[in-house]
Write a protein that binds this DNA or RNA. Sequence first.
DNA 1: ATGTGAG
DNA 2: ACTCACATA
Length: 354
Amino acid sequence: MSSSGSSPRKFPHTEGNLNSDLISFLMELAEYENIVGRNVFKSNAYKTAASVLASHPKRIASGEEAAKLKGIGKKIALKIDEFLATGKLEKLEKIRGDETSTALKELARVSGVGPTKARQLYDEGITTIEQLRGNPEKLTHHQRIGLKYLEEFEQSIPRAEIEALEGALRRSLSALPEPITLTICGSYRRGKETSGDIDVLLCVKSSLDGNATSTEDPKTAKEKHGKKFEDKNLLSRIVNLLEQDKIVTDTLSLGDTKFMGVCRLSDDTPHRRLDIRLLSPDQFHCGVLYFTGSGLFNKEMRSVALSAGFTLNEYSIRPVGSTGVAGEPLPVTCERDIFDYIGMDYKEPHERNM
DNA sequence: ATGTGAG
DNA sequence: ACTCACATA
């Protein structure tokens, strides 16, 4: 899920939370440390603190109370005290008034512009989106597209639009010679009413490996398990098709397994960020699980997997031997299989919103 | 190869 | 944490 922009979706599910005011000042500090301070560790510390508060069931009444939670230390506790006492944070007020900070943040709204590029531009005297528009030669292809659709990408996508797009994608893909399964993941699959982007998983029903765990000798099995496909051009063929059908309008990047780009449902809807991933059949369910998220849910599930003696990633679930070495991928026929392996109750996608 | 960025 | 794709060198 993209995280750029100052839209409501910048601070995931902050609205309505008991501690939403604390969460949002922590997220603002996290953004500052990332983009301006270029200190990923501090930034992550603030993000962790924010997410701890987000899943805390009670309103925090003091820094001391907050400091009892794992992930919140003395420094953050002090800031919470200051905020609770005065309704603001001196540090944050300074940051908001600082022209360098505001400029860097503004520039980083553009997809493809991160902390480093923002600083570069700033050093060259570019401080606004306006000025950026006047100097497109300073930008890569990705960044130019990000700039072109800046405002559109910051608008969240109504569920109904994604439903319609799903239909359009299926119609378009039905022109291919090989049957392809399509699943839209991300917050859409978790039942959210709006999403930030569209995350599509595709899987070819290849005649070759309908049964991934059988009679063939291990060597060929291993070769097939690699990420590459026999048909290296399949994804670009798919993208071409979607371009012809006026669904895909721009490409940010295109590899053998991953497309990142832009799509549009119709002339009177905004341009939207679209990601497509091509998975092999034996990876499909682990992929769907992983890309459905949420990120926090994945983290939790991976740690449950670990304590049950398995390692879980977007491609496979594997047993971890007593030596700590991961074994061969286990057969998986649906998402539920993965929950079963690690002894976790099955969670419907809409129950994975943490 | 290495760094940047997205997810 | 990890992977993919890109730009640059």
